[in-house]
Design a protein around this nucleic acid. Structure first.
Lengths: 199, 199
DNA sequence: TCTACTGTACCGTCCGGACGGTATTGTCAA
DNA sequence: TTGACAATACCGTCCGGACGGTACAGTAGA
């Protein structure tokens, strides 16, 4: 009963969120209007505002959904293979995400344009993830480099700055995985796929 | 004579450009209005539109100025010490830029919100730089990782996602410089500060 | 006299959001 | 069983304000 109601509601909500992401990508981040989203989602503006009482709430939902999904994927990927370290799972997941058809999270720009405050949840998410990674590695340098490289890749895809060819892509993946696995600064232990527990 | 005119003109132009960057940072990228820029620059709106006939032209000038300055700094840094490779100069320059008081290039968001087309000159600049770096190194993996890490750092500063403490900062700098100088994937040649010429 | 503005008044457009409907479905007392 | 009411999930219109841009008259300095 409740489920049915929820599923009907979610249907519209999800359609709207997807439409918002589409519009943001196609019309440009500065041109994300409620009208455009509504018509793209196939509902009226009134209906849109019924589901999301303001533009800000819509953006917020977009951010929350994104973070929830990413978190879930990460946890899942890590749980599926707990031998490998978390950083490795993060690298793989992020690179897959970047490879997926240009969809990308370009709606983020719309959110920032609307109100830079929408960055705070993302900020805290990233900060937490980084702290978690830092607690698990003995090699800060590699972590920093790998983490930032992933972040750089993400920004490249976001801005569509640079497109790597297949060869470059593979080289990058290999390099990052290798750095995530071992500790290239203390040279020598190349095969180790598990980090030594530090405690 | 021409110089004088230019300098007077430039005076206003520069004030306006700086004001635009300020407003973009303070009011948020979605709230960069011509009125705000004009009042911030201490001139009238009419005066602003005299210097930049449209908002788009203003944004374009912002982008162009930024790229010109960066290019000049890079060339200068590299010319000052041609022994070191270009990637190293790029790393140093970028990290200094990121460290400078939060000013950052957050006006970029305003430009994108205005029209994503403003990314094309930046895109082509980055592509050219990357190609130039690629032509000069034998170790694609290191280049990719270093280049993307810098890009990641830039995006971190832009979004204010993550702030590194002094220790992390130093570790990152060391790691990137080391990777830029030598070729850590072929382990062993750590001291080499010049790349072997490949031809 | 020309350049480089200032200041003001104004226009058209776009957009967020409020609001008043409405159709469908569910609930419940008589 | 049915009639009264209510909640849900929308629709469509309208309004106020912000913003980009225009027009133009005035003016101070070189």
């Amino acid at each position: 009963m409740e489920k049915l109601m929820k599923s009907r509601k979610s249907n519209s909500r999800d359609k709207i969120l997807a439409a918002a992401a589409d519009v943001a990508r196609e019309a440009g981040p500065g041109n994300l209007s409620l009208d455009a989203v509504a018509s793209r989602a196939g509902i009226s503006k009134g209906g849109l505002l019924y589901n999301f009482p303001s533009k800000a709430k819509l953006m917020q939902a977009l951010v929350e959904q994104y973070l929830r999904d990413f978190q879930a994927s990460l946890e899942e990927a890590h749980a599926a293979d707990p031998q490998k370290n978390l950083l490795r799972a993060y690298v793989r997941l992020s690179m897959e995400e970047c490879q997926e058809t240009g969809a990308s999270a370009s709606w983020i720009f719309s959110a920032i344009a609307q109100d830079p405050e929408f960055l705070t949840p993302i900020k805290s998410f990233k900060r937490q993830l980084f702290e978690r990674l830092k607690a698990k590695t003995a090699d800060l340098q590699s972590l920093l480099v790998v983490y930032l490289a992933i972040e750089g890749l993400r920004s490249m895809t976001l801005f569509e700055f640079l497109t790597l060819d297949e060869h470059e892509w593979q080289a990058l993946l290999d390099a990052l995985i290798a750095m995530a696995d071992s500790q290239p600064n203390q040279l020598g232990v190349k095969g180790a796929s598990e980090l030594p527990r530090t405690e």
